[in-house]
Simulated scan of single mutants.
Amino acid sequence: MRNYPVLLFALCAALCPAAELPIGTSLANEPLSPWTESAEADAIVFIFVAPDCPISNRYAPTIRRLAADCADHNIALWLVYADNLADAAAIRTNQTEFKLSGLPTVIDRDFAIADFAGADVTPEAAVFMRPAPESAPLLVYRGRIDDQYQGYNKYRPAPTASELRETLDTIIAGHLPSLTRTKAIGCYLPRP
């Protein structure tokens, strides 16, 4: 019975035409749609990050590992900088410093992608799948990367649960994950 809402949503998504999906801008200030760029991917992972968030920056090694795993399994991983004052130069500097250069990146100045995913903090992850090629994306996970952070400045040396990794493993195994939501700990998105 636990999967009933997800299956019902998947059926509706398969039968209903895809709605207009939010887009952002590239680091070159060009319109950019992660949905179009990743149309052939089995899933799309958005990780909301910020150059000035220490928790987000501490997750850089984990994000690099996740990105490599995703690339090996036809899963698109995007870094999303949701900030109406986002500065491409500061983002590039941050990505160089934390070895995130080269990862697909979108700037979400109007918070359209963050609103669509329901993201509130950095770092926070949202995973979408398409039950059918022309269907609307189905949110299958939103929340923390893992449970290493229990609160601001309160963290474990290593995580004991990795819900994002578990969701990705389910997708890699060829299954539709049950919708999972966890509370992400981090810096709040600077919505106006």
Rank of each mutant, 00 (worst) to 15 (best):
P159S: 09
T170V: 12
A14I: 00
K183N: 08
C53Y: 13
A119T: 10
D83T: 11
A161R: 15
D169M: 01
A60C: 05
G24N: 10
D146T: 08
L189T: 11
E30S: 12
A161L: 12
D83G: 06
E166W: 04
T167V: 13
L164D: 02
P159N: 00
I185C: 06
R2T: 09
T170I: 09
T180Y: 01
L32C: 06
N3D: 12
L189G: 08
R156K: 15
K154M: 11
P133H: 04
R65G: 03
D120R: 12
A60W: 11
P157F: 06
K183Q: 13
T93F: 07
A119W: 03
D120Y: 01
T167L: 08
A19P: 00
P61I: 03
A86E: 15
A18V: 11
V80F: 10
R64N: 06
E20Y: 01
A132D: 04
G102L: 02
R191A: 10
N3W: 05
S56P: 02
A90G: 12
A90S: 15
Q150E: 14
P54A: 07
Y4W: 12
R156W: 05
L164R: 01
I44Q: 07
I91H: 11
R144G: 02
E30A: 12
P51C: 00
E97R: 15
R191Q: 14
T62Q: 10
P22L: 03
I55N: 04
T122V: 06
T96E: 14
L176P: 01
A41L: 01
A18I: 04
S178R: 13
E134Y: 12
L21A: 07
A67L: 05
G143H: 03
S135C: 08
I113M: 14
I185S: 05
A132F: 05
D169A: 13
V49Y: 14
E37G: 00
E163I: 00
R142W: 00
S162E: 15
A126L: 07
A119E: 10
T62G: 00
L85Q: 14
N94A: 14
D72L: 10
T93L: 10
P192A: 03
S38Q: 04
A76Q: 02
W78F: 14
A14N: 01
A18N: 05
R109H: 05
V6T: 14
A86P: 13
L164S: 00
R181K: 13
A173H: 07
L139Y: 07
P131Y: 04
